[in-house]
Every structure is written in C-alpha cells, then in structure tokens.
C-alpha cells in the first residue's frame, strides 16, 4: 500500500479489515489456547492477565495515532483511532467481565470489598468507569455535537492509561519491569504532545512530505 496522504475507498476498506483482524487476534488466541488446553494451570489468571494486557496495549495504540500522524503526515491514520479506542474498551469489558464472573462469581459484597480494599482494583475500576463515557461518545455525530468539549472529554484517555499503568504497577509483586515499559511508552507519547515539540514535528513532517492536506489538520 503506497504511503500517501489519501487512501482510496478500497484501501480504506482493506486496511480497516486488517486492523479488525489484528485487534481480534488476541481474543482468537485465547479461544484457540482454551480449546487446546493451552492456558496453563490457572486459565482464569491467564485470561485476566491477557485481556488486561491488551486493554493497556489498545489504549497506548490509540494514544499513538495522533503523534504518528504528526510525524508521518499520514492523515488517514486518524481514521483508525476510533476503532482502536473501541477495541481497548472491548478488551476492558472482557477483562472486567472475567473478573466479575470467573474471579468473583458476581458476589456483590465480595466485589465491593475488593474495590474498596485492594488499591490496584480501585484504580483499575476507576479506569474502567472513566472509559465508559469515552466509548459512549465515540461516534462522529457525538464529536460534532459536543464540539470543543469532545476533545476535553477525550483527553481523559491519558488519565485512563495512567491509571491502567498504576493498576499494573500495584498488582505486580516485585518485578516492575513490565509496568515500567508501558510507563515509558506513555511518557514518550505524552512528550510528543508537548506544544513545542509537536510544533517542530509538524514542521518537519511538512518539509519531509508535502501532502494534499496539511499535517495537523483534521480529516
């Protein structure tokens, strides 16, 4: 697929299909492993961790779209942001459902106690609750309806990703290498949004690749 500022409708359909396939792969993997007895001795833990990991990866991938667009000048990248964000929410729902059902068996008092007493659960729960309004307002017409407030609301995704990392940090017993890795990625993505840096990146992208639509403009 050529590296151009605009995609033909066919290319859009194909790349969306490809993205769907990539986003569904982690779920497919769980199903395949589950059917083959490949989830190890503690399948419920495996599923909880896998869906948690992919929620976080999904959130960071969503956050990476705009900086990558600014770096590359490929404006069509922005078209995939909503899909990525919704997949992050999809995996968050799977993750939360695994917890509610397979870990707690929908026992309300046990769940309430857990959310209050275990800091890493409190933080994960907050992240999940905050994701709901973002998923609910992801459609184009909501974007139009909310105007500037839409962007304000959706900046919450940084907070959510941050909470996700704290959640991970607090749940590991001692080895913080994985949460640290995710924290570094989030930090890089944040730094790339700093106004000065963003400005120079935009200028750079403009010089490197003249495009029909100026980098930085909205689709």
């Amino acid at each position: 697929m050529p590296l151009t500022a605009r995609l033909t409708p066919r290319q859009i359909i194909w790349s969306k299909a490809l993205l769907w396939a990539i986003c569904l792969a982690p779920l497919l993997r769980l199903v395949v492993l589950g059917l083959n007895g490949g989830l190890g001795a503690n399948p419920i833990e495996f599923i909880t961790r896998s869906t948690g990991t992919w929620t976080l990866v999904g959130l960071l991938a969503t956050l990476a779209v705009t900086p990558l667009r600014n770096l590359s000048g490929l404006n069509w990248l922005i078209r995939f942001r909503r899909l990525l964000g919704l997949f992050a929410f999809f995996y968050a729902c799977l993750h939360f459902t695994t917890y509610l059902w397979l870990d707690q068996f929908f026992d309300p008092s046990s769940i309430a106690r857990d959310i209050i007493k275990r800091p890493f659960i409190t933080v994960g729960f907050a992240a999940f609750i905050l994701l709901i309004p973002l998923a609910a307002t992801s459609r184009q017409h909501m974007m139009k309806k909310l105007g500037r407030n839409w962007q304000r609301l959706h900046r919450l995704v940084y907070v959510i990703a941050g909470l996700g990392i704290v959640h991970y940090w607090w749940l590991v017993k001692k080895d913080i290498s994985q949460p640290l890795l995710y924290a570094c990625v989030l930090a890089v993505l944040l730094v790339m949004r700093l106004p000065r840096l963003q400005h120079s990146l935009l200028a750079r992208a403009r010089d490197a690749a003249p495009r029909s639509c100026k980098p930085g403009c909205r689709e």
Binding site: G38, L71, L181, V185
Partner: peptide, 29 residues
Amino acid sequence: ITPREVYLKRRQFMAGIAALAVSPAFAAA
C-alpha cells in the same frame, strides 16, 4: 522520520508487544 530515541522506544514497545503475543503463543507447552 522519527527521532532516534523515539524510534528505539517504539522498537522496544513493538518488541514488547511481539513478546507478549508470542510468549506461550498459540501453542500448548
């Protein structure tokens, strides 16, 4: 087109994703 540091971080991130995806991968032990 990417500052080296960012590029390396991204590579690290991708390697992380690849490792996560492949670890016990699609196969049972």
